[in-house]
């Protein structure tokens, strides 16, 4: 008797589990690093990386939970299987590829050198000498660049590492640093927040950002992420590496969700993006629309409201 019930119930149970429990993946991100990821004053997590993750999840039919993790802990957390995806403006590097797997690149970034407007530096040569203090966030390519191209080569500068980027910027504003080396888009955000700062120069590091998962992609996420990015409207002309360097030319389908997300996040001030996000986010989870419609309407709404 008991056995028969089990035979009847078990498949139902499994079915039920399948229907209710859409896969849920944990996305780790180092908050704050606007405009890629930050928390609004009300405590919502938004940013380009995170909304790309949300849109892909909607398209691919899984759920995500966003978990703030310190930047230098994200890769260990992914390796330990504690989180599933790292989405935090990670530059694709050979060193990182030894321990994790990357998605296709989704962003090209160079390093900006931020200084105070009142500083006397005319060029990078004035800055990179004389024991000047240069700040960077621990574990970032900016920090790596300063270490390997300046400190290791005996240039007389002092590298000061920070756990978060804003702390470095704050020290720059307060005069405890002479410069901060950071990715371009984030640096643009700091300048709009702090008019006393300017970009002294751009160091062309040709960094490509990618999302990362555990080595060997045990949960089969990379394919979903790559497909998702494609569906959102990101296309590439991929040429073979030249002198070991990636050369990727992005082109974005005009009027695609990807296009709108870029418009929304790179340009308008954070307050406007936050207001837009609050107004539009429900669209992304509107059950009356198809996943494609939801993603499109959300991205479009975000771009329009943010640039109003």
């Amino acid at each position: 008797m008991g056995k028969r019930i089990l035979v009847l119930v078990l498949p139902l149970l499994l079915l039920g589990l399948g229907a209710v429990g859409a896969e849920k993946y944990i996305v780790a991100s180092d908050i704050p690093w606007a405009p890629f990821e930050w928390a609004s004053p009300e405590g919502d997590y938004l940013g380009f990386d995170l909304d790309v993750m949300r849109c892909i999840a909607v398209l691919m039919g899984y759920e995500i939970e966003i978990r703030p993790v310190a930047f230098d802990s994200i890769i260990p957390a992914v390796v330990l299987g504690e989180v599933d995806i790292g989405a935090s403006g990670f530059t694709i590097t050979a060193k990182r590829e030894e321990v994790v797997d990357f998605s296709n690149p989704y962003w090209l970034s160079n390093q900006a050198v931020l200084v105070r407007k009142d500083a006397a530096f005319k060029s990078l040569d004035d800055l990179f000498c004389c024991g000047h203090k240069i700040g960077a966030q621990r574990g970032t390519t900016g920090a790596d660049w300063v270490q390997s191209n300046l400190v290791d080569k005996g240039v007389d500068v002092q590298l000061v590492l920070y756990e978060t980027y804003p702390e470095a910027v704050l020290d720059l504003v307060n005069g405890r640093l002479d410069a901060v080396v950071q990715d371009e888009p984030a640096s643009q955000q700091s300048i709009s927040a702090y008019p006393a700062l300017k970009v002294l120069d751009i160091i062309e590091t040709n960094e490509y950002f990618g999302f990362l998962v555990a080595s060997g992609d045990p949960k089969g996420l990379l394919r979903k992420i790559n497909d998702g990015m494609y569906q959102l409207g990101l296309r590439y002309d991929l040429s073979l590496p030249v002198e070991g360097q990636w050369k990727v030319k992005f082109h974005i389908v005009p009027g695609s969700p990807w296009d709108y997300l870029v418009q929304a996040y790179f340009g308008p001030p954070l307050e406007k993006v936050e207001a837009a996000w609050k107004a539009c986010i429900d669209t992304l989870y509107d059950g009356t629309l198809t996943p494609e419609e939801r993603v499109y309407e959300f991205a479009k709404c975000l771009a329009e409201k943010a640039s109003e």
Partner: peptide, 23 residues
């Protein structure tokens, strides 16, 4: 906060990161 618990200190850092003037 060091191991990823989102408590008041972490939230304060979020807010600071969003608007440096609030540090």
């Amino acid at each position: 906060s060091a191991i990823g618990v989102i408590e008041v200190f972490k939230k304060a850092r979020f807010i600071m990161g969003r608007n440096y003037a609030l540090a």
